[in-house]
Design a protein around this nucleic acid. Structure first.
Length: 774
DNA sequence: GTGTGATATCTTTTT
DNA sequence: GATATCACAC
């Protein structure tokens, strides 16, 4: 295999790709071709004859893994790439634990608890311990436990550790150690692991079982880690031990984009890499190929406010581009309209697809205003993140049946559906069962199996109901390996009455729930029937044989999916993307709107107490800015509804941190009288039909932007003021054309141009880049 | 045990 | 504005 593809790389990229042996760290500035280096490096390894089975490539999301696989396939021109161990930390380790977990006492069909499962379990533990449910809020307790596990602190160590004990004491939560212990025991009894356990147990497995460690050290001759700045201590140690034999380890990351500190990511991993591998070679990718120089400079000026950094200078040869515009509105609703109108205009004037636009926000809850205004303008959009498909109630209910069929000890699944649809097994019965289960250290399922021996604890009516439930579940279990995934899934949905119950619900929500169930069943059908699908939903390989297309294979890592992984949605039509900044990491868009830039929102109110937290918020803003290729727009609102009531807001400190020559700020603050709040800008055509043709161009924030801004925009194109009907012009996209007519004035100056090849277009001169030919 | 309606509490960010 | 929990009637 030849390496001709290496010619496509710049000098530092190519060096990083060719340094295949030994420890390597690639510090890759935003937009500098990080993914390119990783994919080419893998391709290069394979062209040198390395067996793809010996390459481990860990990514941050399933989506990133899939894309990288595709790109490698494209580069090398065959399908060998499918054998690479490519996936997220969680999905690769979960897979290994299905094979090796027996050594730790887990069966191969263990369940993966998602966050909701974990919280439910903690909630019931807090109740069982008779602790106050407010001081021991499930999310707090979970994040404490999660943090411990990310740092490889077992419950035993947690309870022994004096510092931790003092911390918990001072927070008036001295019993977290006990809850942690009970939580782990309950998960184990249920044959379940949560997200953190997957890493924790992987570490224990390698630490305590030398034969396993050696096995995987031999398999993973080359290890590559993407987004290294976002790894936590557990991930760090796992990688380190796997790489200990060959030390062929290549980590790629950007300390300036570390944004997962809140979930245990340790920026020290990347800052201290050199100490771990003194002979390591470090390559810096500093040339940005993505964004205009204005965007790059703005981002640099912001991040310069952070202290802890690896020195690097991100630069670009790209053109200067527009200044970053800052838009101010009075209300969050107005912000939504302003952004939607801006997208509409830009898209119409430059004739761009919707997918060129993204709206990035700090919290999922902000999406609403943008959804509404985009819908109003008939602009298709897609929301990433938030409530994912697999987290919907009806989906989780049906999945709980599947989980219970595969792993009957799965307690969260059992509790979820033992009385859904209602079958007369209520709260009192369950409370009794939980106590029995704890006292005897057996799973609830085992109790149910021996329900006749429970004597007078339950009355005979209840026992009968339990037996009926048990029989149904056992009949499903008997089918697990006999029927394919779809047959069984459909059978379960039908016989349990879930389908009927949802079909009978004619409310819009009910209809949508029914459709969701249908969609899930269709996905399973796809999984069974489609011969091309040789992998589980997250992209992991599954065995070829048709007999293995059973429900347990479909389910094996469903808990690790986020809705960004939903294939159906990815192949979707042309849409504007809405997502949190976190979810946008690794992506790029020509036009990016960063919204809700207000103090206590971005930066978040939860993260302005300490310098570290604030620096992470700043890196988050840096990530947001550097997603933009052509134009970045910032917006903030002077007021916003926060859980029901109106709050006044201050603009984010991050806006001021942008170097002044890169931005155009809005003018002086308008008077904050109630009157001005009411008479604030309204779009002139909200009443128009969605498909009304030529709209009166509206400058969304026009009234709010400093006059200077408007002047500047027309001034920038002043050489075009001589345009008149008959003038021949050239457009960067549509080529040559003749001006038919001119209308409007100042910033809404609009020309109808008949292009030789692209036909007639209406262009706003403010945006369109026209050159006068004659 | 079930179903209904009132009410407190909630929101960072995600594998 | 949405969801989880509680009180109450059946």
């Amino acid at each position: 295999m030849s390496d001709h593809f290496l010619d496509e790389l710049n000098e530092s990229q190519r060096k990083a790709v060719e340094a295949t042996e030994g420890a390597v760290m690639v510090i890759a500035g935003a937009g500098s071709g990080k993914t390119r280096v990783l994919t080419f490096r893998v391709a290069h390894l394979m062209s040198k004859g390395v067996d793809p089975f010996n390459i481990l490539c860990l990514t941050f999301t399933n989506k990133a893994a899939r894309e990288m696989k595709d790109r490698i396939t494209n580069i090398i021109g065959n399908t060998e790439g499918k054998n690479i161990w490519m996936g997220t930390f969680h999905s690769i380790f979960a897979k290994i634990l299905r094979v090796e977990g027996g050594r730790l006492g887990y069966s191969s069909n263990y369940t993966i608890y998602d966050t909701a499962d974990s919280k439910n379990l903690i909630k019931s533990l807090v109740k069982e311990f008779n602790l106050d449910e407010k001081t021991y809020a499930a999310s707090n307790v979970l994040s404490r436990i999660s943090g411990a596990k990310a740092n490889l602190i077992s419950w035993q160590e947690y309870q022994k550790n004096e510092d931790i004990r003092n911390e918990d004491h001072s927070m008036r939560r001295p019993f977290i150690g006990q809850i942690y212990e009970a939580y782990q025991k309950r998960c184990f009894k249920a044959s379940a692991m949560d997200f953190d356990d997957i890493l924790f147990n992987m570490y224990i497995l390698l630490r305590d079982h030398a034969e396993v460690l050696h096995k995987y050290q031999k398999i993973f001759k080359y290890i590559l880690v993407d987004e290294y700045q976002d790894t936590n201590y557990a991930q760090y140690l796992i990688i380190k031990s796997l790489a200990a034999r060959t030390e062929n380890i290549c980590v790629v990351g950007d300390d300036a984009q570390s944004i997962y500190g809140f979930r245990g990511a340790n920026i020290q991993n990347i800052l201290g890499y050199q100490k771990d591998y003194p002979d390591c070679r470090i390559f810096k990718l500093e040339q940005n190929y993505r964004s205009t120089s204005n965007i790059v400079n703005a981002a640099n000026s912001v991040i310069a406010n952070n202290k802890a950094q690896i020195h690097k200078v991100v630069w670009t040869k790209n053109e200067e581009g527009d200044r970053i515009r800052v838009v101010r509105t009075h209300t969050d609703q107005e912000e939504g309209l302003a952004v939607a109108h801006n997208i509409f205009e830009t898209k119409m004037n430059l004739q761009l697809p919707n997918s060129d636009f993204a709206i990035l926000y700090r919290t999922n809850a902000q999406s609403r205003a943008f959804e509404e205004s985009l819908r109003r303008l008939n602009i298709p959009y897609r929301i990433y993140g938030g409530m994912s498909f697999y987290q919907r109630k009806e989906i989780k209910d049906l999945l709980a049946y599947f989980r219970l069929v595969i792993n009957p000890d799965d307690e969260e699944a059992l509790m979820r559906i033992i009385n859904y649809p209602a079958r007369g097994i209520g709260k009192t019965t369950l409370e009794k069962l939980v106590i029995l289960s704890n006292d005897n250290n057996v799973s609830i399922w085992k109790l149910l199996e021996n329900v006749s021996s429970l004597g007078s604890i339950l009355n005979s009516g209840t026992k009968e109901k339990i037996s009926a439930f048990l029989q149904t579940m056992k009949s499903f279990q008997a089918m697990l390996k006999k029927k394919d995934a779809y047959e069984l899934a459909h059978h379960i949905a039908q016989t349990t009455g879930i389908l009927r119950e949802l079909r009978d619900d004619k409310t819009p929500e009910g209809v949508s729930r029914y459709e969701n169930i249908e969609e899930l069943l269709n996905a399973i059908k796809d999984f069974v029937e489609n011969d091309e699908v040789k992998e589980s939903p997250s992209g992991q390989e599954i065995p070829d044989e048709k007999t293995e297309r059973t429900l347990d294979f479909f389910m094996q890592d469903i808990a690790l999916l986020t809705d960004a992984d939903d294939k159906k949605n990815n192949a979707d039509t042309d849409r504007v993307s809405l997502m949190t900044v976190h979810a946008a990491k690794g992506l790029e868009f020509p036009f990016v709107h960063i919204v809700g830039l207000e103090e206590n929102l971005f930066p978040s109110a939860m993260a302005i107490q300490t310098r570290n937290e604030l620096e992470e918020e700043r890196r988050l803003f840096y990530v947001a800015l550097t997603r933009a290729k052509t134009r970045a727009m910032l917006s903030y609102s002077l007021s916003r509804y926060k859980w029901g009531n109106l709050q006044y807001c201050e603009p984010s400190r991050f806006i001021e941190e942008i170097s002044p020559e890169c931005v155009e700020l809005p003018g002086a603050e308008p008077a904050r009288t109630p009157k001005s709040m009411q008479t604030s800008w309204k779009p002139s055509f909200t009443a128009a039909k969605p498909d009304a043709p030529a709209r009166k161009p509206v400058q969304p924030a026009g009234k709010l932007v400093k006059l200077k801004t408007a002047e500047k925009m027309t001034a920038g194109n002043s050489e075009l003021s001589g345009l008149e009907p008959g003038t021949v012009v050239e457009h960067q996209r549509f080529g040559r054309g003749k001006v038919i007519s001119i209308e409007g004035n100042n910033e809404s100056l609009k020309a109808t141009v008949n292009f030789e090849n692209a036909g007639s277009k209406q262009l706003l001169l403010k945006f369109a880049k026209l050159t006068i030919i004659g």
